[in-house]
Amino acid sequence: EESVKIVRLVKNKEPLGATIRRDEHSGAVVVARIMRGGAADRSGLVHVGDELREVNGIAVLHKRPDEISQILAQSQGSITLKIIPATQE
């Protein structure tokens, strides 16, 4: 059973501070990098390897990473992410 986590981040004009990529094996959209000091890093709630399912209620599974980045870039104020946390080894 996948544990889905709802994360709310507050982002002003600054970038979210995370990059995403598509996992070639599973097809999932995952967090590739977290930039120090960005909104994602400061929240402490988003981690490399987390699978991104939704951004502000928009399912991202069938979107290209550049489309998802665009949605994230255009979002201001509160951003709600639905993520499946990376499995902690």
Rank of each mutant, 00 (worst) to 15 (best):
V4G: 10
K5L: 05
K5T: 15
K5M: 09
K5S: 13
K5H: 10
R8G: 03
R8N: 09
R8M: 07
L9Y: 06
L9W: 06
L9T: 05
L9D: 09
L9C: 04
V10I: 12
V10Q: 09
K11G: 13
K11D: 09
K11T: 15
K11Y: 13
K11L: 15
K11C: 14
N12D: 12
N12V: 09
N12E: 10
N12I: 10
N12M: 11
N12L: 12
K13T: 10
K13F: 09
L16P: 03
L16R: 01
L16Q: 01
L16D: 02
L16Y: 03
L16K: 01
L16C: 05
G17C: 06
G17D: 04
G17S: 03
A18T: 06
A18Y: 04
A18N: 02
A18M: 15
A18G: 01
A18I: 15
T19I: 13
T19H: 10
T19R: 07
T19D: 15
T19S: 11
T19P: 01
T19A: 09
T19V: 15
I20D: 00
I20K: 00
I20M: 10
I20S: 01
I20W: 11
I20H: 01
R21F: 06
R21I: 14
R21C: 14
R21T: 14
R22D: 04
R22T: 11
R22M: 12
D23Q: 08
D23P: 01
D23A: 06
D23T: 06
E24W: 10
E24L: 10
E24I: 09
E24R: 11
E24S: 10
H25W: 10
H25C: 11
H25T: 13
H25D: 13
S26H: 05
S26I: 04
S26F: 02
S26W: 01
G27Q: 09
A28S: 11
A28M: 07
A28P: 02
A28N: 07
A28I: 06
A28L: 05
A28F: 02
A28Q: 11
V29R: 03
V29S: 07
V29Y: 14
V29C: 12
V29M: 15
V29K: 05
V29P: 14
V29I: 13
V29F: 11
V29E: 03
V30K: 12
V30G: 01
V30Y: 14
V30T: 13
V31C: 03
V31K: 00
V31S: 01
V31E: 04
V31D: 02
V31W: 02
V31M: 05
A32Y: 07
A32F: 05
A32W: 08
R33G: 15
R33C: 07
R33T: 13
R33P: 02
R33K: 15
I34L: 10
I34M: 07
I34Y: 00
I34P: 01
M35N: 14
M35C: 11
M35S: 14
R36T: 11
R36G: 07
R36W: 02
R36V: 08
G37L: 02
G37C: 03
G37D: 08
G37H: 07
G37V: 02
G37I: 02
G38Y: 06
G38N: 02
G38R: 03
A39S: 07
A39P: 11
A39L: 14
A39W: 09
A39Q: 08
A39E: 04
A40K: 01
A40M: 15
A40P: 01
A40F: 11
D41I: 03
D41A: 10
D41R: 03
D41V: 02
R42V: 08
R42T: 08
R42W: 02
R42I: 08
S43E: 03
S43P: 00
S43Y: 04
S43D: 04
G44W: 01
G44L: 00
G44P: 01
G44F: 00
G44C: 05
L45T: 09
V46K: 01
V46R: 00
V46H: 01
V46E: 02
H47C: 07
H47S: 08
H47D: 06
H47R: 09
H47A: 08
H47P: 01
V48D: 05
V48G: 02
V48E: 14
V48L: 06
V48T: 06
V48C: 07
G49S: 02
D50V: 00
D50K: 00
D50T: 03
D50I: 00
D50Q: 02
D50E: 01
E51Q: 10
E51A: 05
L52Q: 02
L52S: 00
L52R: 00
L52H: 00
L52A: 00
L52T: 01
R53V: 15
R53M: 12
R53F: 06
R53I: 15
R53Q: 10
E54V: 02
E54I: 00
V55S: 00
V55P: 01
V55A: 04
V55M: 03
V55N: 02
V55K: 00
N56C: 05
N56G: 04
N56Y: 00
N56W: 00
N56T: 02
N56H: 01
N56F: 01
N56V: 00
G57F: 01
G57T: 02
G57W: 00
G57K: 05
G57M: 00
G57S: 06
I58T: 11
I58H: 12
I58A: 07
I58Q: 12
I58D: 07
A59G: 13
A59D: 15
A59K: 14
V60H: 02
V60W: 01
V60F: 05
V60S: 03
L61V: 12
L61D: 15
L61A: 15
L61F: 12
L61Y: 15
L61M: 14
H62P: 05
H62N: 15
H62A: 09
H62I: 02
H62M: 07
H62V: 02
H62K: 13
H62Q: 10
H62Y: 08
K63H: 07
K63P: 01
K63W: 06
K63I: 03
R64S: 15
R64T: 15
R64C: 11
R64H: 14
P65Q: 12
P65H: 08
P65F: 12
P65N: 11
P65I: 15
P65D: 15
D66R: 11
D66Y: 11
D66P: 08
D66K: 10
D66W: 09
D66A: 12
E67K: 05
E67M: 05
E67R: 04
I68K: 01
I68T: 04
S69P: 03
S69T: 13
S69Q: 15
S69M: 14
S69V: 11
S69W: 07
Q70G: 12
Q70S: 12
Q70V: 07
Q70P: 04
Q70E: 14
Q70L: 07
I71N: 04
I71D: 06
I71A: 07
I71Q: 09
I71K: 03
I71E: 09
L72W: 07
L72E: 04
L72N: 03
L72P: 02
S75Q: 11
S75G: 09
S75C: 13
S75V: 11
S75F: 09
Q76V: 12
Q76R: 11
Q76C: 12
Q76G: 09
G77Y: 07
G77N: 10
G77R: 09
G77S: 10
G77P: 07
G77L: 04
G77T: 08
G77K: 09
S78Q: 12
S78N: 12
S78P: 14
S78Y: 10
S78I: 14
S78L: 12
I79Q: 04
I79N: 05
I79W: 09
I79E: 03
I79P: 03
I79K: 05
I79V: 13
T80D: 10
T80R: 07
T80G: 04
T80E: 14
T80W: 08
L81C: 05
L81F: 07
K82W: 00
K82M: 04
I83T: 08
I83M: 10
I83S: 04
I83F: 08
I83N: 04
I83H: 03
I83D: 04
I83A: 04
I84C: 11
I84V: 12
I84H: 09
I84S: 08
I84Q: 08
P85W: 02
P85D: 04
P85T: 07
P85I: 00
P85H: 07
A86L: 08
A86V: 10
T87R: 12
T87W: 08
T87H: 13
T87E: 15
T87D: 13
T87C: 15
T87V: 12
Q88S: 12
Q88E: 10
Q88H: 11
Q88V: 11
Q88W: 08
Q88R: 13
E89K: 15
E89G: 11
E89C: 08
E89P: 12
